[in-house]
């Protein structure tokens, strides 16, 4: 069993966590015309990288979403930040 760090609750059992998505996708504006290609890319395309990854996870016990960085080969966790903090970083 692996321990994952929730930015709010600390280290917890991996089973309490759920992988959600890769960050960086923005939902197309559905009030205007969207091509089928753009909509499909939004829904389905994934980078699915080997090695260092940034992903959005949910800690199901506290229902908070956060960004976890980890290595998808070694499974080492490299860091976790709340979505708000990581959005702040992106805005800077």
């Amino acid at each position: 069993m692996q321990l994952f760090p929730c930015p709010f609750c600390g280290l917890r059992n991996e089973r309490e966590f759920h992988y959600m998505a890769e960050p960086g996708k923005f939902r197309p504006d559905t009030s205007s015309q969207i091509s089928a290609e753009d909509w499909a890319a939004y829904l389905y395309d994934t980078r699915n990288e080997k090695g260092r990854v940034r992903e959005i996870w949910m800690h199901q016990t506290c229902r908070e979403l956060f960004v976890m960085e980890r290595d998808s080969v070694t499974m080492n966790v490299l860091g976790s930040t709340s979505l708000r903090a990581s959005a702040g970083e992106a805005a800077e």
């Binding site: 991996e14 089973r15 080997k50 090695g51 990854v53 992903e55 998808s72 080969v73 070694t74 499974m75």
Partner: peptide, 13 residues
């Protein structure tokens, strides 16, 4: 497994 991965090995859960 529940966690996306390229780690080609088993785990306890």
């Amino acid at each position: 497994d529940r966690i996306p991965s390229y780690g080609q090995r088993g785990n306890l859960p």
